[in-house]
Design a protein around this nucleic acid. Structure first.
Lengths: 135, 135
DNA sequence: TTGAGTGCAAAACGTTTGCATATAC
DNA sequence: GTATATGCAAACGTTTTGCACTCAA
C-alpha cells in the first residue's frame, strides 16, 4: 500500500485536462492536450497518473474501446454509448434507479466481491450513420 | 461487404476451442489451445476470425479487460464479473428482466442508434481475496 | 534531506496488415 | 479455375518499465 502521496503539478494538469476536454479522454488525448502548453510532460507520467487516479477513485475507468482505455471525471454512476465507427463516447441518460439498483439485484455469490459496475452500449452515432447512407 | 463465406477448418477449430475452454477466452488463449494439436495455425487467422465472428453474431465480444479482448460463445444476453487481480471472468446471474429491460428504458436519443449492450462488474474474486488476507 | 514522482527511451503487449500461397467452392 | 482465407512476419498503437534525476514534503 502507498502511504505518502505527493501533489505534483503534472497530476493537477492531468485532472484539469480531462475536465476541460470533457470527452471521456484516453491517456493519449490528455497528453496531447497538456503538451500544447507544457511540452516537457512525458507520456509515461500521464499513463502512470491516470491509472493510479482511477485506482484511488479520483477518476472513473469507463472501459477500453477501439484500442484505448477511457476515463471519466464525472464520478457519478452512469452509462455510456460508444460509436463503433468514430469512437465518440456519449453519456447515456437511462433510468437512474434502474442502473443504480442493478448492482443490488444480482444474485449474491461467494465467488466474488463486486466493487464497480460498468454499463456501455455500442452502435453508430448520428453523424457516422449519415455518412454511411451517402456512400 | 463480404458476399461469399467459406467454412474453413480453422474457423471450426476456433469455435470448438472457445466452447471447450469455456473461460470467456481472448484470442491468445484460443491460439495456444489450438496450437497444441494443430501447431500450423497462425495467430493472424485466430484474430481475424474471432473479430469477424463477433461482427457476424456467431460470438459475443464482451469487452476488453486487463489488456485483451474477450469473447463468449454464450450468445444469450448476460452480465459478467471480472476479477481485477487474476483476470478471471465469471457469468453473473442478475435479474434477467432487469438486464433485458435496461436497453428499453434508456432515454431515446437522436444522437445514436444502439445495437449492443455490455454490462460488466469489477472486483476481486474469492481466490484472490483469500491470497491478499494472508499477505 | 530523502524517497516519491518525473522524463526519457526502450521494450512489451495485443492486435492489424501486406503479401505470396493454399484451398473451399 | 477463381477469389477467399491462410501462414508468416513485419508493423502498428497503446501501455509498461528501468533508470538517473528532480522536487514536494
Amino acid at each position: 500500500m502507498r502511504l505518502i502521496k505527493r501533489n505534483t503539478i503534472q497530476k493537477k494538469w492531468i485532472l484539469e485536462a480531462i475536465k476541460e476536454l470533457n470527452t471521456h479522454a484516453a491517456a493519449e488525448e490528455v497528453y496531447d492536450f497538456i503538451a500544447k502548453s507544457n511540452p516537457t510532460i512525458s507520456k509515461g507520467t500521464v499513463y502512470r497518473n491516470m491509472s493510479q487516479m482511477a485506482k484511488d477513485g479520483e477518476l472513473l475507468n469507463i472501459g477500453s474501446f477501439l484500442g484505448a482505455t477511457h476515463y471519466d471525471h464525472n464520478l457519478h454512476e452512469h452509462a455510456h454509448f460508444v460509436c463503433n465507427v468514430c469512437g465518440m463516447i456519449f453519456d447515456v441518460e437511462c433510468d437512474e434507479n434502474l442502473l443504480g439498483s442493478l448492482k443490488d439485484t444480482i444474485v449474491v455469490s461467494d465467488e466474488y466481491k463486486i466493487s464497480s459496475c460498468n454499463v456501455s452500449f455500442g452502435g453508430v452515432c448520428a453523424k457516422c450513420g449519415l455518412k454511411r447512407e451517402t456512400i
